[in-house]
């Protein structure tokens, strides 16, 4: 067996692995409509209006209606597009987004009917690296989608994506190095365990801020939604997409939002741990994680309602000239402090 992959301290039967995969996928996928309707409702409230309230009670069935509408749309593509790439790109985006979910810990190892089950897909010993690897693959989804559309707006969006996602991934990665050094492990489960006394957001506050900002850029959310800036390049990489392919991109974006929020919760906010010595029963762990995550999701939406979009060159210079030096400094200081106090 590959030693760097799935080093778990106990044996899990294969059917549990599959069952966990299905359950995590199903739950996260069902969260997306809630997230979408929640975003629209919240945006509505931020903007002094009601938000969707026509379909279903309180408009809760709006995403369902959206999905039906989008799924029954004609599958068209421009004459100038490259067919197989055009079809493949949204798939890559979705697969990469969901792939990153597999290592998020939702809870500790639980004893379920006499079987030891970890409330996570996998506990890999390369935790954050796996997430970044998936992020890098997701970038191909956007890049190929923009490139293969054969539209100039899509092309510009792809170019922006190429520059933006790569430059912010560097800062995002470096922001986590401090945590990894402090915890002394790359396993996300172990990182959560290491936060028993104090959440890493306190010693690694700068790292958290850098990670937060870079996450906005990585998920293409306002104010860094340059890749799809609708006022400038119409829709960026998904200008030419419609129907289910567009839905795939939309889902990928929202799942990515969930993933970065979950990572932030796991790495900086103690995962399923609660402060002040509160120790709830193990089956509550996933709810604690999701509860903390929803705080970040609301924050994402709040920022979207408030801030204007930055300009492309400002984004790049901010990423390389502010975030990256800060992240490097954070890493250095953490290393020095660790060595000094060791």
């Amino acid at each position: 067996m590959n030693p760097s992959f799935a080093v778990v301290s106990y044996y899990e039967p294969w059917w549990i692995q599959i069952l966990k995969a299905v359950v995590i996928f199903a739950i996260i996928l069902q969260l997306q409509p809630i997230l979408i309707v929640g975003e629209r409702k919240l945006l509505g409230r931020f903007q002094g209006r009601y938000g969707p309230n026509r379909v279903g009670p309180y408009g809760l069935a709006t995403p369902l209606a959206d999905v039906i509408k989008l799924a029954t749309k004609e599958q068209f593509r421009p004459d100038t597009s490259i067919g197989w790439m055009f079809a493949l790109a949204p798939i890559i985006s979705v697969v990469a987004a969901i792939g990153a979910l597999s290592i998020i810990p939702f809870g500790d190892t639980q004893d379920i009917f006499g079987t030891q089950v970890g409330l996570y897909g996998l506990d890999v010993s390369i935790g954050p690296l796996f997430v970044f690897a998936m992020g890098a693959v997701a970038f191909y989804g956007i890049m190929l989608g923009g490139f293969s559309s054969g539209s100039k707006y899509s092309f510009l969006g792809a170019m922006r994506a190429a520059a933006q996602l790569i430059s912010y991934e560097v800062s995002q990665g470096l922001a986590l190095v401090g945590v990894v050094m402090t915890a002394g492990t790359l396993s996300l489960t172990e990182i959560v365990h290491a936060q028993q006394g104090m959440w890493y957001v306190i010693p690694q506050f700068l790292g958290f801020l850098i990670f937060l900002v870079a996450s906005f850029a990585e998920t293409n959310r306002a104010p860094f939604d340059l890749v799809e800036a609708d006022a400038e390049i119409v829709g960026g990489y998904f200008t030419e997409y419609g129907g289910t392919r567009f839905t795939s991109y939309l889902f990928a974006e929202y799942i990515n939002m969930c993933v970065v929020s979950l990572i932030m919760v796991t790495v900086f906010f103690g995962g399923w741990l609660l402060p002040f010595g509160i120790n709830p029963p193990g089956w509550l762990d996933p709810f604690i994680v999701l509860g903390k995550t929803s705080v970040f999701l609301v924050f994402f939406i709040w920022i979207r309602a408030t801030l204007p979009r930055v300009r492309y060159d400002q984004l790049m210079s901010f990423g390389w000239k502010v975030l990256l030096p800060l992240a490097t400094l954070n890493t250095l200081v953490t290393a020095i402090v660790l060595v000094a106090t060791d």
Partner: peptide, 16 residues
Amino acid sequence: SALDLGAMSMFWYCFR
């Protein structure tokens, strides 16, 4: 113009 700059909420405040 705020909408063009990405500050979408301004649109609704102004239209109020």
